[in-house]
Computed example of a mutant assay.
Amino acid sequence: MQASKEAIARGKKLNMLSLVVWSSIVPPLPMLLVTLILDKPATVLYALINLKALSVFSILYLALISTVIAYGIWGTLIAKYPAGKVAPLSILVPVIGLITAQIVLEEYLSVVQWLGAAIVILGLLISNFFGYLRNSKIDKN
């Protein structure tokens, strides 16, 4: 939020998507270096030559959808709202992952998984709306 305020003070708008894209360019280089240290170059070359369509799709999905778009949205929310309001939403990631796995991969979710998801959602509702309701009662008094 501070970076957003500074950008507004300069008469500009903070472009979080641009920040995410530029910061995503750096990690592949050290990761490639670590890969070459841990594996033989021939192994890396073999893996690259024998990439399957599903692997390419997975890489593109992880690079474009989950990284650029998701972190772009996350960054926009952090720039616009206080971190204390946005950060708790990150605990929805496993819940969304479970539900997506059930829909896309037709996985069976156990009662414990559904219970865990319900507890996470209930906790978010309580933490967000209980404080709001409590503060609105205080304001009335």
Results as ranks from 00 to 15, higher is better:
1 M>I: 09
2 Q>V: 12
2 Q>W: 06
4 S>M: 03
4 S>F: 04
4 S>A: 13
5 K>I: 07
7 A>Q: 04
10 R>H: 09
11 G>P: 04
11 G>D: 03
13 K>W: 02
16 M>T: 11
18 S>M: 11
19 L>S: 02
19 L>P: 01
23 S>H: 10
24 S>R: 00
25 I>V: 15
26 V>L: 15
27 P>Y: 07
27 P>I: 06
28 P>A: 11
28 P>S: 07
30 P>F: 07
32 L>Y: 12
37 I>Y: 15
39 D>H: 13
39 D>M: 15
41 P>A: 08
43 T>D: 14
44 V>N: 06
44 V>L: 14
45 L>A: 15
46 Y>L: 10
47 A>E: 15
48 L>R: 09
49 I>Y: 10
49 I>A: 12
50 N>H: 15
52 K>Y: 09
59 I>A: 15
66 S>D: 14
67 T>V: 06
69 I>P: 00
69 I>G: 04
70 A>S: 11
71 Y>L: 13
72 G>F: 02
77 L>M: 14
79 A>N: 08
79 A>I: 01
85 K>E: 09
86 V>H: 04
87 A>S: 12
89 L>H: 07
90 S>L: 14
91 I>E: 05
92 L>S: 01
93 V>C: 10
96 I>C: 10
96 I>E: 08
97 G>R: 09
98 L>T: 06
98 L>C: 07
99 I>E: 08
100 T>H: 06
101 A>R: 07
101 A>V: 07
103 I>S: 04
105 L>R: 12
106 E>G: 05
108 Y>E: 13
109 L>Y: 04
110 S>M: 05
110 S>P: 03
111 V>N: 10
112 V>Y: 13
113 Q>F: 04
113 Q>M: 11
114 W>S: 02
116 G>S: 06
116 G>K: 03
120 V>F: 02
124 L>C: 00
127 S>V: 00
128 N>D: 02
128 N>I: 11
128 N>G: 08
130 F>V: 07
138 I>Q: 05
140 K>S: 07
